[in-house]
Design a protein around this nucleic acid. Structure first.
Lengths: 210, 210, 210, 210
DNA sequence: CATGAATGAGAGTTCATTCAT
DNA sequence: AATGAATGAACTCTCATTCAT
C-alpha cells in the first residue's frame, strides 16, 4: 500500500551510509581522492561534514568503503560465469560479452577503473585486492577456457600467458570512454562492437590465414 | 680537469626549467595533481618553492608544461610511421610494434597515460590536445592501413570504425602495467608479447576459421 | 550571581562576527588593508585564522563588512537632522554641531575617513557608496538650508555650489586629528571650537564687512 | 647644439635615482606602501628590481626619499610668502591663494597628503617632519597675519588658536579631490572657488552680522 | 544521531632582499 | 652600474578533523 515516500527513522538511519557512499563515489570520480572535499560529499546528501564522520572515521576509510561498495556487482558477475555451458567458443564469447557489459558499459565499474588507475599509488591494498578479486579470476577463467578449447581442438594453440590480449578490447574501450567520455570518441553500439570484436578475435585479420 | 661540477650561470639557467619539469613529472606521477606539493618538486631539484615560481606561474601551468614536455617523443614517433614500406601486414605490425615500444614500454609515455586518465576532469584542454595529437592520428593511420590491405585483398573486410580493437592489446598492457607495476602482473617480454599479439591478430583464435 | 563568564553556544555565535569586525577595525586602522594580517585580527579575538574565514570569505569581504558595520551610526545621524526646527541659523549650526560630534569626535567615523582616503583606489565601490550615503546627503542638507536662509533674508546670497566651504572646518579638524593624533596638534575643546567656527562662519573676519 | 635626446653616461646615471623616485611616487600613490611592489617601480623605469636596490637600501628608505623629493616645491612656497606686502587682507588672501594652488591643485602635493594620512602610522618620523616643515609654518604665518590685522583694526578679534578654520576650505577641497577624483565631485574652477571662499571668510554668512 | 563552530597544520603564492656575474 | 636567479619568510586561504551541544 505504502509508496516509497516516508521512511521510518530506522530506515532513514540504515540508508545514510549508503547515501554517503553514493555521494562519495560521485565526488571522488569527479575530483580524485586528494581533490575531493568531505564537505562536498556531505552537501550532496544534505547533511553536514560532522555526519560523514559519524559513519566513516576518515576520508581514506570512506574512500575504501566506497570502492568496496561499488565492487559488489562485479563480484556477482564472476559467479554467473561459472554457470555457462556450450562450446568453448560459446562460453568464451558469453564471458567476454558479460565483461563488456559490466566493465565498459556500467558506469560505476568504469569509474572504479579510473580510480584504481589514478589512486593506486596511494592505496596499495586497494590495488592488491582489485587484482585478487577481479583481474586474477577473469584471467584464470579466460585461460581455462582457452586451454579447454585447445584441448578439444576448437582453438589453435596460443601462448596462454598473454591471454590479456584476448580481453584487451574491453579494457581499451573502457579506458577510451573514461578519457573522452562524450567528447570526441563516439560511444560504440554494443551489438556491433561485439560482433566486430568476436569476428576479429576468432577469425583474425588475414584473408588467407598462414 | 673539467668535471660536470660547475655550470656557468647561463647553463644553469637553461637547465633549471628542464630539471623542474623532470621533477614535476616524478611527483605528479607519484601523487597526482592535487596530491603533489610544489615544495616536493622543488626539493627534488634542491631549490626552494620560490624558484619553481620563477619559471612557472602556477602549479597548473607547471603541470601543463610538464605534459607538453613529455609528449614530444611521442610526437616524433608519429612522423616515423609515415616512412614505412612493404606489405600492409608488414607496415601494420611495424606500426604496432613501434607503438608498443613508445606507449607500453616507455615509462614517461606510460605515466602520461595515467595522468590523462586521472586528471582529465580537471584539464579538459589536455584531453582535447591528447586526442587530436595522439589518438586521432594513430587511429587514422591504422584505419588507412586496414583499408589498403582490404583493397589489395590482403585483409578480410572488417568494420573500420572499430579499429581500436586492433590496437587494444597495446593500451591494455600499458594500463595493466600502470596499475600493477612490479606487483602481481609480470612485465611481458617484448618479443614474445608481440609474436603472440600479431599471431592472434592476423590468424584469429579458431583452428578452422569460419 | 551570574557574571559575563560563560556564554551559550548561540550567544557566542551571535557575538563572533561582531568581535571580528571590531578587531578588524583596529587592525585595518593601524596598518591599512594591505598591511594587515588576518592572523592579527584573529589573535585579537583569541581565535585562529580559520575562524575568521568561517565568517568572512576573504580579507576583502571582511574589510567591506567592517566598513559597513561602522557606517551605521553615521547613517542614523542623517535621520536626526531632518527633525530640526528653528531659524535657518539655528538649524545650520545644529547640523554642523552634530556633524562635528559624529565626524571629528567619534573615533570610528574619523578612522573610517582615513580608510576611505587611504584605500579608495582599491575599493572603488566603497568610495561610491561613501559618496552616495554620506557626502551627498550632507551637502544636499546644507545647500537646502542655505537657500532657505537666503530666501528668508536671513543669509546673504552665496554661491551654493561651494557649500563644502561651509562644512570645511569639520573635515579639516578631522583630518588633522587623523594625521597628528596626540602628537603635536592639540585636540580642540568642542565648545570653544564650535563657538569660533560659528562666529567666523556667520560674521566673517572683517571688522567692517564690505 | 644637442637637443634633449641623447644623454651621456654620466647624465644617465644622475637621472636614474630621479626616475626611480618619480616611478615610486606613482606606484605608492596607486597602491599605498604595503601594496606597492618594488618590481612595479622598477618596471616603470625599465630597469630590474636589483637596480632599485643599487640606489635605495630598502623599500622604506625609498618611500621616505620619495616623500622628501616631492616636498621640495612646497618648501619653496613658504619662502615666497615672506615677501608679500599690502593690507592684512591682501596678504592673507594672497597666501591662501598660493596655498590653494600648491596643495589643492598640484597633484604631487595633493597625493603626498594622501600618503601622509594613509601611511602615518607606519612612518611616525614622516609625520613629525610634515608637521614641522608644513603645518606649523603655515599656521604660524596665518596666525601672525590675523594678529596683525586685529592690531590694525582691519579684522575682528578672533581666537587665534583655531586659525585652522581659516585654512580649512583648502584642505577640505584637497581631501575631497583625493577621495572622489574625477568621479562624482566636480573639480572646482579656481577663480570662482577662491572668490566664494574669500567672500565668506571675510564677510560671513549673515545678512546682518551680529 | 546530527550539527557546525573551531581548529591547526599546511598548501599555493608573493615579494623584499641578496649576490654572483 | 645593472642584472635576474634564487631565497625564505610571510601571507592568504583551505580543509580534514574534533567536540560541545
Amino acid at each position: 500500500m505504502a509508496g516509497p515516500k516516508k521512511l521510518t527513522r530506522a530506515e532513514q538511519k540504515a540508508l545514510r551510509p549508503i547515501q554517503i557512499l553514493d555521494a562519495a563515489f560521485e565526488e571522488f570520480v569527479k575530483s580524485g581522492f586528494a581533490g575531493t572535499r568531505v564537505e562536498d560529499i556531505a552537501d550532496r546528501v544534505n547533511v553536514t561534514k560532522g555526519t560523514v564522520y559519524v559513519y566513516f572515521e576518515t576520508k581514506e576509510k570512506l574512500f575504501e568503503a566506497m570502492i568496496n561498495h561499488f565492487s559488489v556487482p562485479f563480484q556477482e558477475l564472476l559467479a554467473v560465469t561459472d554457470a555457462l555451458s556450450g562450446s568453448a567458443t560459446d562460453r568464451l564469447t558469453s564471458i567476454l560479452g558479460l565483461l563488456y557489459e559490466q566493465i565498459a558499459e556500467d558506469r560505476p565499474t568504469r569509474e572504479l577503473t579510473r580510480l584504481v588507475i589514478a589512486e593506486g599509488h596511494r592505496f596499495p591494498d586497494l590495488i592488491d585486492r582489485h587484482h585478487d578479486q577481479f583481474i586474477e579470476p577473469i584471467i584464470a577463467k579466460v585461460d581455462a577456457l582457452i586451454l579447454e578449447g585447445v584441448a578439444s581442438g576448437e582453438f589453435r594453440e596460443i601462448p596462454v600467458e598473454f591471454s590479456d590480449i584476448v580481453v584487451a578490447p574491453i579494457l581499451t574501450t573502457t579506458v577510451l570512454r573514461l578519457i573522452f567520455d562524450n567528447r570526441r570518441v563516439a560511444i560504440p553500439n554494443k551489438e556491433e562492437f561485439l560482433r566486430a570484436y568476436f569476428d576479429l578475435l576468432l577469425n583474425g585479420l588475414l584473408a588467407k590465414p598462414l
